[in-house]
C-alpha cells in the first residue's frame, strides 16, 4: 500500500528551524488530522511538502507513492498527485477560475489528447453546484476580492477537479459559515476512497465531526508530540493545549 511518508524532516525559514525531526506516515485510504497551537509549524509542513521556495528543507525525506518529493519542483509534485488547499489562498488578478483550472488539467493531459471544453464545463459546473458556488464565479479572477469562505470553497473546487491522490487541507474550515462547512465537508467526504489519503489541519473539533479522521496528531514546536483517535480532538477541545505542555515538561 502506498503512503505519504515523512521522516525526520527539518525545515528552516531564513535560518530559523521551524520543523524539527518531523515524522508522519499516512496510508492511502486514511484521513489524519493535525491540531496544534498557532505557530507550531502546521502550515510550514504543508508548504514544505509542496516545495514552496521559502522553506528550506535541510534534513529528512518525504515520499508520495514512491516519488521523492524533496527533489521535485512544485508543479511536478502537484502532477505526482499532491494537492494542498492553502490556509491563505493567493489572489491572482486577471486569471479566471475557469482558465486556471483548465490550465491545471491540461498540464496533466498527454500531448496527444484533445481538451474537451464541453466535458470540462459540465464537470466544473457539477462540482460548483455541489459546493454551492455560483456559476458566475468561473469568469471571476482567481480569489480576487473573494470573501474568506469563498476562497476556501474555491480551493476545494480545485481539489475536486484535479482528482489528486493525496490532499492536505490547511484550515479549510476557518472562514466557512455553518452551512458551507457542511457542504464542503460533504465534498471532501465524497472524495474519500481507499486509494486517496487526506491530511486535515484544523483548530476545531467541529470539522472532525463532519470529516471523521482515522487518526489525530498534536503538533508542538515543529514535532508530533501525541497521536490518538478522534477522541483526542474532543479532549483538546475541552482541555486546551496546556495539559500537553505540562506533560511535555514533566
Amino acid at each position: 500500500m502506498s503512503t505519504l511518508k515523512v521522516q525526520n524532516l527539518s525545515v528552516y525559514i531564513e535560518d530559523k528551524p521551524i520543523l524539527n525531526d518531523f515524522s508522519l506516515e499516512i496510508p492511502y485510504g486514511e484521513v489524519h488530522a493535525i491540531m496544534g497551537p498557532n505557530g507550531s509549524g502546521k502550515s510550514t509542513l504543508s508548504k514544505a511538502l509542496a516545495a514552496h521556495p521559502n522553506y528550506d528543507i535541510r534534513n529528512g525525506t518525504a515520499e508520495l507513492d514512491g516519488h521523492n518529493l524533496i527533489d521535485m519542483e512544485p508543479d511536478e509534485i502537484s502532477r505526482a498527485g499532491l494537492f494542498l488547499a492553502f490556509q491563505y489562498p493567493i489572489e491572482v488578478p486577471g486569471v479566471t477560475i475557469a482558465n486556471f483550472i483548465r490550465a491545471a488539467i491540461q498540464a496533466r493531459m498527454e500531448e496527444s489528447k484533445l481538451f474537451k471544453a464541453v466535458d470540462y464545463y459540465k464537470k466544473l459546473y457539477q462540482k460548483m453546484d455541489d459546493l454551492g458556488i455560483d456559476r458566475n464565479f468561473t469568469a471571476r479572477s482567481l480569489n480576487d476580492g473573494f470573501s474568506g469562505g469563498e476562497k476556501k470553497r474555491c480551493e476545494i473546487l480545485q481539489m475536486a477537479m484535479l482528482d489528486p491522490k493525496f490532499c492536505i487541507l490547511d484550515e479549510t474550515d476557518s472562514g466557512l459559515d455553518i452551512d458551507a462547512l457542511r457542504v464542503v465537508s460533504a465534498g471532501v467526504n465524497s472524495m474519500r476512497s481507499s486509494n486517496r489519503g487526506f491530511l486535515v489541519i484544523t483548530h476545531y473539533q467541529r470539522l472532525l465531526d463532519y470529516i471523521v479522521p482515522d487518526k489525530v496528531h498534536v503538533m508542538w514546536e515543529g514535532k508530533i508530540v501525541r497521536s490518538g483517535d478522534k477522541d483526542l480532538a474532543s479532549e483538546l477541545e475541552s482541555k486546551g493545549y496546556d495539559w500537553i505542555k505540562e506533560e511535555l515538561a514533566a
Binding site: 491572482v92 486577471g94 486569471v95 498540464a107
Partner: peptide, 24 residues
Amino acid sequence: FYLLSRGIEKKSAESLISLGFLEE
C-alpha cells in the same frame, strides 16, 4: 507558486499571470 502548486508548468504559469496582468 500558487499556479505551480496546481501542476501548471512554469512557462504556462508565467503566461497566465501575464495575460491576467494584460486583461485590464
